[in-house]
Computed example of a mutant assay.
Amino acid sequence: MIIKLFQLEKINKNDFNFYLFYGENEGLKNETINKFFNLEKSKNIFRYEEKELLENKDNFFDSILSKSLFENEKLIIISRVTDKIVDFIDQIIEKEIDDIKIILNSRILEKKSKIRSLFEKNKKTISLAFYADTSLSLANIANNFFKEKKILISQDKINLLIERSRGDRQNLNNELSKIESFLLNKKNISIDEIMELTNLAENYNISELVDSCLSRNMRKTANILNENNFSTEDCIQITRTLLIKLKRLQKLFFEINNNKSADEAISIFKPPIFWKDKEVVKSQIKNWTLNKTEDLIYKTNEIELLVKKNSSNGINIVSDFIISQSDRSNN
């Protein structure tokens, strides 16, 4: 069944267990999922990648069929969904399993998409498209943020933030979080400070790729490499981003070796590590040591030189390197 976003709040959640959220606006999707399904208070939340689920169908069935007297309703979020999963999801829908809610999160789907067609035609399922934000809607988000913080800001600065978020409210909210931390003891921010603090939106996938690699999440690393058309120019950006995050990790290990806990080292780090990144950084600390980090800094510099000498094969060189470093068995 097709619905609009404003209609979602009017439906009875007890009448629907299956939801397809598709489109390019990841920020609005996340806001909607958090609000509509009350994620802050939900305890039984399970997250899967489509590829991970398809490789472990039996385990997934066991998990949704198993019940406990002490468990509330399960919320299952499946990311990076494509038509490959349509038959499997159709089987689950037909079983009419109680006490689960399943959200499929997909990028843009064409009208002929099988998974989209399944959810649009079935009266027991919800299909909801999330279109890109307009400049006006992003400006409203930014203006409301600064108004709430009682900070005067010019339209030029708002426009710069919108430009650097590339039409994605998730990117914009990430940058506003950084600015909020920066403005703890200040009431204004300059254009230059915004330029220094914020990322261009195209760097987000590269940052996520590097974070997944350093967290030794090989499956997610491979998914990001497969789903993005990184160019030859991106290869140097990937190695530079990896070096920046490795040097941050190196400094954290220096603090930890001075009898500080990981939490203490992260909390005093300069520039600040923002709250949304802290769990990722903790995972990286668990997967590396100071010696291994310094060794990888050396190897990354070598890879960057190799890419510059073999630019036509750069993406293959970098991809193989990133995948090998994300492998937990590569110690």
Rank of each mutant, 00 (worst) to 15 (best):
D90S: 15
Y22E: 00
I77M: 04
N59D: 14
K149L: 06
I85G: 00
I158Q: 02
N257L: 13
P272C: 00
K278Q: 14
N59K: 12
K292S: 09
F21Q: 04
D90K: 14
N144C: 11
R107H: 15
P271E: 01
L296Y: 03
N258E: 13
I76P: 09
S79E: 15
M218G: 10
V307Q: 00
D327R: 11
E255N: 14
E294L: 15
D234M: 01
K260F: 13
N173P: 04
Q284T: 10
G23V: 02
K276N: 11
N257P: 05
G27T: 11
G23T: 05
I256A: 02
K124N: 15
K95E: 06
L39S: 10
W288G: 01
L104M: 06
L152F: 15
C235V: 01
L225A: 03
D263L: 10
D15A: 11
L197I: 11
S267I: 08
D211P: 06
L249T: 08
F146N: 11
I92G: 10
K114E: 00
A222N: 10
I64F: 13
S63F: 05
D87P: 01
N259C: 09
N259D: 14
N72R: 12
E26W: 08
D83L: 02
N59I: 03
E208R: 13
F146Q: 04
K286A: 05
I126H: 08
I256L: 04
D83E: 01
K276F: 12
S106E: 05
S283E: 10
I33H: 07
A142P: 12
Q170S: 13
F130T: 10
V307C: 05
N30D: 13
K186S: 09
R116L: 15
N258F: 12
M1Q: 05
Y19A: 10
A139W: 07
